[in-house]
Design a protein around this nucleic acid. Sequence first.
DNA 1: CTTTGTGGTTGCATTATAAAACCAGATGAT
DNA 2: ATCATCTGGTTTTATAATGCAACCACAAAG
Lengths: 161, 161
Amino acid sequence: MVKRTSFDKDDCPIARSLDAIGDWWSLLIIREALFGSRRFGEFQKSLGLAKNILTVRLRALVDQGILKLAPASDGSAYQEYLLTPKGRGVFPILVALRQWSEEFDDHPEEITTILVDKEKGRPVRKLELHSQDGRLLTAADTALKPRPDTKPSRKLRSISA
Amino acid sequence: MVKRTSFDKDDCPIARSLDAIGDWWSLLIIREALFGSRRFGEFQKSLGLAKNILTVRLRALVDQGILKLAPASDGSAYQEYLLTPKGRGVFPILVALRQWSEEFDDHPEEITTILVDKEKGRPVRKLELHSQDGRLLTAADTALKPRPDTKPSRKLRSISA
DNA sequence: CTTTGTGGTTGCATTATAAAACCAGATGAT
DNA sequence: ATCATCTGGTTTTATAATGCAACCACAAAG
């Protein structure tokens, strides 16, 4: 956006995520990476975005610890972009986006792919949110609570002794 | 973004979702709506965005069938913005974003809220993706498959007879 | 030495956003 | 009835991001 109100200092974790990966290209780049793309050219060809923009996006993703640069892999002295655990952690977000589109899009017939489990080749189930005791939850079953305070006392007051 | 490359015609459901709700404000508006906000003024105050922008966003969300306008609710002759089922369907996306932030953010201590299940008041579990036979799946356990074709033959060839 | 891969730089067009003024209809008090 | 205020916007103007295209540069591959 423009005057990016920089949700960086916002206490809402959703805003924080959006601040990190909430632009049009970043999530798609991560999608391609999860799909197997590693090289600059691969991303550029599959996504069809301008190279300078890809450059900026890749660097931002590396800076944020979502991608990392690895030296080689094939013979060439170039580098490739690999997902970090943080990057792979984006997977559920992508699945949620996909499933929302599958369920509510006005033209679902234009969606040409389905997400399947590799072992059986059958479509996956919908994402599920459970309570700690295992009940399946919907939005109406949840609430937001203030956090008790991260670490009120450090358990040992190193200052005083 | 600017020249919104309009992923509208893209066959990737993730791109399609992003095209619908992939901007900074829309998801936050939906978050507030799930949280209970209904009125123009409520959204404006809680999000602190300019009124003209809120106007545009709200209208876009209504156009997309994510919000709908309902006549009243309290006495006043005003309108309020209510989530449609499509809008409530965004909930898993917000949860996924929240959990990603909770798990990978560099400053998780700045997150001041936790998502709990209303009945017990305890934190929810992480979103889970299962195969149809119930196995818990990670990204590595999944693959993308071309869709068999929505409706290859209509079952009755109305043209020829 | 030519091609390919991997970017960087520049310039221009488009657009989202912000900020503030303005406005019409409803509400509320006198 | 009237005046002031609130609500829910619209309009205008200015600016900052972003997208895109095109050209440049350098390393490696052949």
